[in-house]
Design a protein around this nucleic acid. Structure first.
Lengths: 332, 332
DNA sequence: ATGAAAGCGCTAACAT
DNA sequence: ATGTTAGCGCTTTCAT
């Protein structure tokens, strides 16, 4: 493997000059630039990042810590981040925290030690996720999809209250009256906010929310399945349900099918997220779609801005979700 | 930020001793080990990876280059890799090559420069993907899901020929006769092999494969959509179709719906992959499931073995896929 | 505009 | 068993 000194020797210059050329330092004469570039080409030279990172105390890699790699919402977000990051000259590495605080803190330590240039994270927990190792060392951080309490960081999220409210209003419009809510993991802001929007939507229609109709599915498929089953087993089961993400919606739909309840006639359903197959399930699923790709783009842009100017006040971008009505919520 | 010398001073030892403790070198006395550990704790010391990597010429990070982050097949594979890698003491970073040779070679350069300990990759192209930058520098590489020509690397793949043959035999059993194949990207081994299995299945039943019934969908959703539409527009349209991955199956199903063809009565369908929603679409989709999670586990294990002993002959693990019959392929 | 030299923080060879 | 020392490959003063 060639080193910078090999390039320097071949080009007949000092290592310092090679370094300058490599880093677009304008003080090098046109002639030497050419000679160095030729030598780099010739030797197929690639700078050693470890050495560069050690010297510069930083890399050109962004870390993206997502809480569920299986969720198309997050993978779309990844693409948004990538698009902008690559333009800004960064590579993106992905770490799957898997809704697990331990894994999350492990990855935070890893990316810190790897000296990534910045971190975009969907925190596993609103209150327990600890970003301070990052923030204390001045690593730029942007929170996406979910809020994190007690840390003043840039954030890009959906308006979850409004999203849920929209879903409830729509269900109400279609004649459903006993509407349940299958929530996500406790301690995650999206779950809390969507629950708030659920209650708001009901109250706006003069309906008193019933605690028995609110149940958690932990953002997991079998959680959604169990939750739906328990809902149906109640003395006065709901005639509709709002589901906090599409992974649980799969479980809920399975439960409904097993229980022999027909959607949308017996039970109406609206879920958050708009996965590719939403229109293909039977019946086509009505959803509250979030601007996943855009969230990723905004996050990368905010990160870029913060890297340039770390004193700017934390920005908070909130995107409006969008109701997409299909069949699962329409009574005939 | 603390350095190793800070820890050394606090513990009253030399930096070398701290380094030994940190790296579980057994030659340190029990007493000093304790003092060093206390100092590390006290200072919340975390070694600088760039410095360590520079010195050691290597890191403890594995890179996983996947060709489509949106595909649940790959995300399940990621989890398998993670499980084993974490046990072996490695962190896993993910890079999304997005079926794009340029992105792929860029990421190869990046992970090389970052001196990752090993690479697991689903190559974007059987013949064009160039692993030699990695192999030339002795970086252990394992190919997953897809083969790569001209490089002697460990591989973990499904038996795609057998998978496709299974699907065709099943379709034939159910009375379908004109069976089409929607293939993936040209130049990808899975696509080629599945096509071979398709032809094999037909020939075994004494049916001559018709080139007009084989069409590529590029492994993309709209590719599957267009391909299905073109198939249906033929003078003698197929009565069944084998789709090479589930992403295209979504598109194909959409096309079928738009064209007013009923599945499975008018057209039977079997797709590769078994995404979470396969049983929920209408009709529930028959699939050829691959052992995604297992493929990931095996890949990480092979990588671990190769890191220990780089002269071992390249292993090639082939997993049998599994036919899961649901409704989309059963004529009533 | 260019080069010489120092040093980032760690580990491994060598010395004791 | 522990410490001393050199050096990984790069960037960046500082001097010219």
């Amino acid at each position: 493997v060639n080193r910078i000194s090999d390039v320097a020797r071949l080009a007949g210059v000092s290592p310092a000059t090679v370094s300058r050329v490599l880093n677009d330092n304008p003080t090098v004469s046109r002639d030497l630039v050419r000679r160095v570039q030729a030598a780099v080409e010739e030797l197929d030279y690639e700078p050693n990042r470890a050495a560069r990172n050690l010297r510069r105390r930083g890399s050109s890699v962004l870390a993206l810590l997502v809480s569920d790699i299986d969720n198309p919402f997050f993978t779309a977000l990844v693409r948004g981040v990538e698009e902008i990051a690559l333009k800004l000259g960064f590579s993106v590495v992905l770490c799957n925290t898997d809704e697990d605080l331990t894994k999350e803190s492990r990855y935070i330590a890893v990316v810190l030690a790897e000296q990534v240039a910045g971190v975009i994270i969907s925190p596993t927990s609103e209150h327990q996720t600890d970003l301070s190792p990052l923030l204390d060392r001045g690593v730029p951080v942007v929170a996406v999809d979910r809020l994190t309490a007690g840390h003043a960081v840039d954030t890009v999220v959906s308006d979850n209250v409004e999203g849920a409210r929209l879903g409830i209003a729509h269900l109400l419009d279609n004649g459903y009256r006993r509407i349940a809510y299958i929530g996500g993991r406790a301690g995650v802001s999206t779950s809390r906010e969507r629950a708030a929007g659920y209650r708001l939507g009901l109250r706006q229609a003069g309906i008193k929310p019933e605690p028995a109709l609110v149940i958690s599915g932990g953002y997991r498929r079998d959680g959604g399945h169990t939750a739906m089953l328990r809902l149906l087993a109640q003395p006065r089961p709901p005639d509709a349900v709002l589901v906090a993400n599409h992974v649980m919606a799969i479980g809920a739909l399975e439960a409904l099918r097993e229980a022999g309840r027909r959607v949308p006639d017996d039970v109406g359903l609206v879920s958050f997220d708009d996965p590719p197959w939403a229109a293909l399930v039977s019946p086509p699923m009505s959803v509250i779609a979030q601007h996943d790709y855009e969230i990723g783009r905004h996050a990368a842009e905010l990160l870029g801005l913060r890297m340039q100017e770390d004193t700017r006040p934390p920005a908070s971008i909130v995107l409006k979700p969008e109701l997409r009505v299909r069949e699962s919520s329409r009574r005939r």
